[in-house]
Design a protein around this nucleic acid. Structure first.
Lengths: 232, 232
DNA sequence: TTTTTTTTATGATTTAGATCAGTTTTTATT
DNA sequence: AATAAAAACTGATCTAAATCATAAAAAAAA
């Protein structure tokens, strides 16, 4: 039986690959194809910039990106998105014309930029499509709430444990993975300073919870890490 | 010309009253009416509990509620919702069957509980309806991102300034308002301790930024408060 | 009205985590 | 391969904010 605590860690269970396009007819798929372009971005490049006009919806075919709020004194990474997901969907709503956050690549990435008016038109004409988009949005919101709680209420070790679990389970699907990001990115993901990330990683290593070799990280005791993410 | 900083404070510009039901036909409206009940909750009562089965969608006809994540060591209030808005929409997505957060009332509130299956059915058959629901969800997400950034990256005075502005502008639509909530609620809204809320309120009062009289608050210098919410 | 409970308030103390300053290592560039 | 520039790391110091302790005021209950 499930307990009523659904935010042990912010690694949303569901967040699967997008399936909304399956709801389109051949004709509608064709319409999207005719009104979209495929673009390859190199590592570190910006796909869309917070505050710029949102003329398109982004579908990440291949690669890995981060979506982040640019602010002073620092940035906040909202989430990391792996291949075959939509990016920037929350930016489309009545009255808004700009991207709510910046999206940039961690590795070379291929994206499909879909004309926003065509996308909106399909939402207004194909209810099954719109319904699936709602599912995607809500799964995303679920994850955001988990991260929100985590970063606001937990202390440093819990937050780092959380993000390491998330990277392992949701992004790399392996207990050993090579980080394409810097320690500073981990800091912006967890709302702490870069020095704290490094210090806590060292602590985890000393306690044999993880193995760190430059940018390669192995989770050695996942169960303990889960405990830390819950109560840390 | 607008600058690319869209998160000066987390008080989302748009978040207006729900208009999605206007998209329904008379027949569809009837279907909703036939499959919903109206319930009056007293002050402080729980409308839906985090982790319990989400069998209905909540439309707040009259009143004021908070949506919050229950966690240990503390709770986090996700948002305050005034009358004529939907509550709990993000809980409906494929694979999820439970409420993602608890909703309770600050004042006596009248809600309409709509059968979730009927609601989902309408989403899958009326694209204009679904499209408006997407707008509502995304406006909500926009606000959440603003609060997320605020609570994670800003310091205490900025966070309190932000929530006071939000209450004034979005909820009470007046520079003087009577708080239906405790200082502890303000703490759970801003991710700080109750003592800190009280101390900073005192500071604001000493600096003649606000006037505090028990639970009645007046914003005396809104422009300065905005500056604090941006840079505090 | 009196009693109990909750909420607000304030000062003292502690601490988690940031900042600062400097070194080493890695990565990128010439 | 040599140089420059990021990024990773470490220790020392500082500080913002939590916690603790206690009192006063307000609200709720008896």
């Amino acid at each position: 039986m499930a307990r009523n605590v659904q935010y042990q860690n912010s690694c949303a269970k569901y967040l699967n690959e997008v399936t909304c396009f399956e709801q389109l007819t051949e004709e509608e798929k064709q319409l999207i194809d005719n009104n979209s372009v495929e673009v390859v971005y190199k590592k570190g490049e910006i796909i869309c910039k917070q505050g710029s006009f949102a003329n398109h919806i982004i579908y990440l075919q291949e690669g890995l990106v981060k979506s982040y709020i640019e602010g002073s004194p620092r940035n906040l990474i909202l989430n990391i998105t792996p291949a075959r997901r939509m990016v920037g969907l929350p930016s489309i709503f009545e009255g808004n014309t700009t991207f709510l956050y910046t999206v940039s690549t961690y590795v070379e990435s291929t994206v499909k930029l879909i004309d926003i008016n065509i996308f909106k038109q399909l939402l207004r004409t194909n209810a099954n499509f719109a319904s699936r988009v709602i599912d995607i949005l809500n799964e995303n919101t679920f994850q955001t709430y988990g991260r929100f709680y985590c970063l606001v209420c937990k202390q440093l070790s819990g937050r780092l444990a959380d993000i390491l679990l998330c990277l392992s389970q949701r992004i790399f699907k392996d207990t050993t993975f090579h980080l394409p990001m810097t320690r500073n990115d981990l800091a912006e993901l967890t709302g702490m300073s870069t020095e704290s990330v490094i210090r806590i990683m060292k602590d985890f290593k000393d306690e044999k919870l993880i193995d760190v070799n430059g940018k390669t990280i192995s989770l050695l005791q996942v169960d303990k890490m889960v405990k830390i993410s819950e109560f840390g």
